[in-house]
């Protein structure tokens, strides 16, 4: 066994590596924003009085959480194509990741909603807040604050999972690594460098969410503890 590592051969492709990392972040950004909205709606839907809506939300959450992301991406990719919709790999990737992370977000948000004490809502009703005000100030924002660490972990996992999009030729970081390794035959070096980039991206994301948390939850910032 001759072990000769040649990292410069891979590192000289830094423009495409950076481009891949940027696309990975872009995928993660869109899927996080859309998935958070989608998941919150599904969490609200699960506690709906209409058993049809609640049931549909439950089917959505359970079917996504119990099948692999790779299968979901292929289903969206080929499913939309067979309906005659020709979409770019990027659009399909964002759609599939959104559907996927939405289901996990829904479960996390549901736990957050359930953690809101009933008395708080009754107190808000007693203070004659409107339904919308109650939903926003008493239920939604405190619930997000409670589950914020879990949401952060989920969205970082989503960024890592976006590597699967390389399988439908979205040119993100893992796809760039595949391309470099088939071009230079420096597989070990290429994947080590990409692994380091992913670790860096996940640290950047965690730092970003921590900063965002400071802005979003001033009470937490002042007290130094969660609710």
């Amino acid at each position: 066994m001759s072990l000769q590592l040649d990292f410069p051969a891979v590192l000289e492709r830094w423009p495409s590596l950076l481009g891949g990392a940027a696309l990975t972040l872009e995928l993660a950004f869109f899927a996080t924003v859309l998935g958070a909205l989608f998941g919150t709606l599904a969490a609200v839907g699960r506690s709906s009085q209409s058993s049809l809506i609640a049931g549909a939300c439950k089917v959505y959450v359970e079917s996504i959480r119990n099948t692999p992301l790779l299968v979901q991406i292929f289903l969206v990719y080929f499913g939309l194509a067979s309906l005659g919709l020709k979409l770019s790999a990027f659009t399909v990737a964002v759609a599939a990741l959104t559907i996927n992370v939405g289901a996990y977000t829904a479960e996390i948000m549901r736990a957050g909603f359930e953690a809101i004490p009933r008395g708080q809502i009754e107190a808000a009703e007693g203070l004659a807040l409107s339904r919308l005000q109650i939903y926003w100030h008493i239920i939604l924002l405190p619930a997000i604050e409670k589950v914020y660490p879990a949401l952060t972990s989920q969205f970082v996992l989503l960024m890592l999972a976006s590597s699967v999009c390389s399988q439908i030729s979205a040119e993100e970081l893992t796809a760039v690594a595949n391309y470099i390794q088939s071009d230079t035959y420096r597989a070990f070096e290429a994947y080590i460098i990409v692994a380091v980039l992913y670790i860096a991206l996940s640290l950047v994301m965690r730092a970003g969410f921590w900063g965002l948390g400071l802005v979003l939850f001033p009470r937490r910032r002042r007290l130094g503890t969660p609710l």
């Binding site: 999972a161 893992t174 390794q181 597989a187 070990f188 692994a195 992913y198």
Partner: peptide, 10 residues
């Protein structure tokens, strides 16, 4: 901090 896919390729 690393995707499973990258670990598999490694």
């Amino acid at each position: 901090g690393t995707p499973l896919l990258v670990i598999l390729f490694l």
